[in-house]
Amino acid sequence: MSLYILLLALITSCGNTNGTSQDTAQVVKEEVVSTTTLQQGMLVGEFKKEDLQQEPFASWFNSGYEGFTPSAEAMKTIKKNIGDYKIVAFMGTWCPDSRRETPKLFKILDDAGYDLSNLIIYGVDRRKSTPEKIETEYALNRVPTFIFLKNGKEVNRFVEYPQESIEADIAKIVSGEEYSNSYAK
């Protein structure tokens, strides 16, 4: 039974996988949706919040967004500091971690009054790739990854799951406090 659970965890992980499966290696039919590509039900490439608010993503995005209330203490810090940052985000619409954290990110940014034109968000396929190959510029290994840039330079990043809570982690990043994601070396 434990071998089955381990195998299931490896198959569904949103982390980096160097191998390819038959599903990810096959050529897929692409359909243009907004400025994004829809591949096998996944958003791939740059997209906007409005894309997640449409089916087939709306069911998990809207409930995750509406069901999340960030802590007031963290939001006070975020509101004070978030305007200094540009954010580059990577997520997979197929990934449970991305489905859990991405709606929360948008709720935090909306509650903070963040200018969403300073957010660039990319959907990746199961190989963590985009058509533009932008992920290579940011050394992407896991999703979701939210990269905080100040004056054009990376300050820190949130990767896959929070250390405390997503809002507490983001508050630490934007206030310059000590913060390391789970995969920082």
Rank of each mutant, 00 (worst) to 15 (best):
Y4E: 15
G15E: 11
F106A: 08
V33I: 05
G64N: 13
W94G: 06
T12C: 05
V32W: 02
Y179Q: 07
N81V: 07
V44G: 04
M42V: 04
R126P: 00
P96A: 14
D111R: 03
G113S: 12
A112K: 07
G92P: 06
D169G: 11
C14S: 15
E167Y: 09
D97E: 13
L119Y: 01
L8R: 08
K133T: 05
G152H: 10
L6H: 06
R157N: 13
K86Q: 15
V174F: 12
D110M: 11
G67I: 02
T24L: 06
A9V: 11
K79C: 08
R157F: 10
K48T: 12
E154L: 00
S175Y: 07
R157D: 12
D51C: 09
A89Y: 04
F68H: 14
L116H: 12
K80L: 11
A72M: 01
S71Q: 10
F148K: 08
S34K: 04
V143C: 09
E132F: 00
R100Y: 08
F61R: 07
L43N: 04
A184L: 04
T24S: 15
V88T: 14
V124P: 01
N62A: 12
D51Y: 05
G113F: 09
R142K: 03
A9Y: 11
W94H: 06
G15R: 03
V155K: 13
Q53H: 04
S129V: 01
Q54M: 13
G15C: 10
G92V: 00
K128M: 00
F90P: 00
R100S: 09
K128G: 00
V28T: 14
E66P: 11
G41Y: 04
Y183W: 04
G176D: 09
N18Q: 09
D84M: 07
D84G: 10
N16Q: 08
C14M: 06
P162S: 15
F90T: 03
E160V: 06
Y138E: 02
D111P: 11
E167C: 11
I170S: 09
F61N: 12
S129E: 14
L149Y: 11
F90L: 04
K29Y: 03
S182H: 12
Y138S: 02
K153I: 01
K48E: 14
Y122E: 00
L38R: 10
K79Q: 15
S180R: 12
Q53R: 13
T24P: 08
S21K: 09
G19K: 05
I5K: 08
L119R: 02
W60F: 13
L8S: 10
Y179S: 08
M75P: 06
V28L: 08
V28Y: 10
E31F: 05
K107M: 10
M42R: 09
L119D: 02
D84I: 02
L116Q: 11
V44F: 03
S34W: 00
F106G: 08
P70V: 06
N62K: 15
A74S: 15
Q39S: 13
